[in-house]
Design a protein around this nucleic acid. Structure first.
Lengths: 330, 330
DNA sequence: CTGTTAGCGCCTTCAA
DNA sequence: TTGAAGGCGCTAACAG
């Protein structure tokens, strides 16, 4: 039982002895209604606990005050941070948030996006693994839409993975490191390309150093599993694809009695909440996911209000130097 | 620009040369429509890329196929796990999920719940800090509603914090520990009461052991800060309020050169994703938040379909023994 | 089996 | 300044 039936605008009109139109005007702060009447309507509304049915409003106004967000995996801390920043920003502007977790099923992402979109005014899409062709198609169907961490035919908000990786390299270089190893992660992602680009730049601009690329994965286990290859490479400093992978490597190294950073410096990427709690704490680049989410909302908000957002917003991760990196052994 | 205007049922009716009602019937698989006609309608619908406007359907059907979830903090891993389990279960049943992050503002929780509820068919409420009186009031206003991790005048789904804590104690007791320390966390929460109850039981049933209660907090820093008190207490085994606190203590102990578990056994609670990656890995109780979320949806689904759910579902965390606990020093 | 009609609850011209 | 009336897009009686 959902309790008593919701009071409608008709009830309020009857109670206040006016027409529906008048109640509607008062409730919307609209136009000029006789102050006395308005007050009477407000009193009736308050007394009856009335507030307009958002569904009916949405139907007639053609706008839901809701946006939807499609993410590949709600369990991924990256998206959580974004979702939180996004949610708070949207709520502050009076919007509601519909979420859709695609559970990494790329083939369902399209349908999910379409369905969510129809129940809302706009969409924020995180679909790192969707093909470019499919993305283009979806984007056209769900506009207005904002893309997160990838570009396409819509405004996008992304983190810069290149500059901070280069920053980490420079930091390590300044400490004396010349032989690096890069633990490669998901190859197909856009952020991966940016990382590789940073490596290229570094190779060009720091000709006296070498950077070996070691295929690994994006999780703890792959980081740990890469230890042998790292040691074989002769590297003194490791650039992990992300914090998870860095932590795996760090853990494996510690277990093997390899001093970090004494024998091996390790840097991660992302600054997930636990990066600061490893021993030693992890040097990394802090990707401001909350800000990224808020920026994504801001861009979508612009779109919804007929403004033109920046076509491509970039947020810049900050390099956080902690204990897992230091000078190489002499 | 949102592209071309959505096609409506009227367009399809015109295209197929039938009435709106017929299109509606076909789209809903409803009743008996001449197969040939039905096929023609379906063809038109497909050709025009038509699908019914969910808003209009919601208005006339009085149901949105959407539920809302109110959580105090999206950044909290606990709620993330729940949200994920919930979201996937609800999506599997054809429902959409509206989220509302109250940002720990207890005073806004009520309004948030009310607003979200009006845009959906039911509510799942996680409001651990709301007062009982306020909860009772809100519950009445937003029914159908399911409560998470607290009881009230509505079906509830909660984790059992008592049995597994006792399980951890028994495990440690069996290994020879007799002097325990409990790192107390948030006192006001329901789960805290359950933990204390487990301690009482243990004291009664294991009269040869002592359990000191040490006020701490719920985060890493408070765990680390409790080290001195723990050492002073003479305890050989520590029951931390949660994993964060346990990890803080573990980290501080390691830094101080105190062997874990050699000199001190440490157990956490929750089994957050990183618990397995500490050195040594953390013994803890795995709270199945995903399952909890799925159960919450199941209860709400029952309510929505007119069935009567179990009034109070309990999910049981499993004790996970890892390296941070072991026999006490002789 | 199909079409016509009346709303769902609200906002917004259009008259008065 | 206020009320009456139409319609947002759809579903569900009610006739035919």
């Amino acid at each position: 039982m959902a309790g008593a039936k919701q009071t409608t605008i008709t009830d309020v009109a009857a109670h206040a002895g006016v027409s529906l139109a008048t109640v509607s005007r008062v409730m919307n702060g609209n136009a000029t209604v006789d102050p006395a009447l308005a007050e009477r309507v407000r009193a009736s509304a308050a007394q009856l606990g009335y507030s307009a049915n958002p569904l009916a409003r949405s139907l007639v106004l053609g706008r839901t005050q809701t946006i939807s967000v499609v993410v590949p995996d709600l369990a991924n801390p990256t998206f959580q941070g974004m979702l939180r920043g996004l949610s708070r920003a949207a709520v502050a502007d009076g919007y509601h948030v519909l979420i859709a977790d695609s559970d990494e099923h790329v083939d369902e992402e399209r349908l999910l996006a379409l369905e969510s979109r129809r129940r809302s005014d706009g969409l924020i899409l995180c679909a790192p693994r969707m093909s470019d062709e499919q993305l283009a198609e979806v984007v056209a169907d769900v506009a207005p839409v904002v893309l997160v961490n990838r570009t396409g035919d819509a405004p996008s908000v992304a983190a810069d993975y290149r500059t901070p990786l280069r920053g980490i390299i420079d930091h390590l270089y300044a400490q004396g490191h010349r032989r690096f190893a890069y633990l490669a992660g998901a190859a197909r992602s856009a952020s991966s390309g940016q990382r590789l680009s940073a490596l290229e730049d570094a190779r060009r601009e720091l000709p006296d150093c070498s950077i070996a690329e070691i295929p690994a994965g994006v999780d703890f286990a792959s980081g740990a599993g890469a230890l042998d290859d790292v040691l074989t490479s002769g590297a003194t400093a490791v650039l992990a694809f992300n914090d998870l992978s860095a932590m795996g490597l760090l853990s494996a190294a510690t277990e093997r009695g390899i001093p970090v950073p004494g024998r091996l410096s390790i840097a991660g990427f992302d600054d997930i909440p636990f990066a600061r709690y490893t021993s030693p704490a992890l040097t990394t680049a802090a990707v401001p996911m909350g800000e990224l989410g808020a920026r994504a909302w801001s861009a979508l908000h612009d779109l919804l209000d007929g403004r033109t957002p920046e076509p491509a917003v970039t947020v810049s991760p900050e390099v956080i130097v902690r204990g897992s990196t230091g000078a190489p052994a002499a």
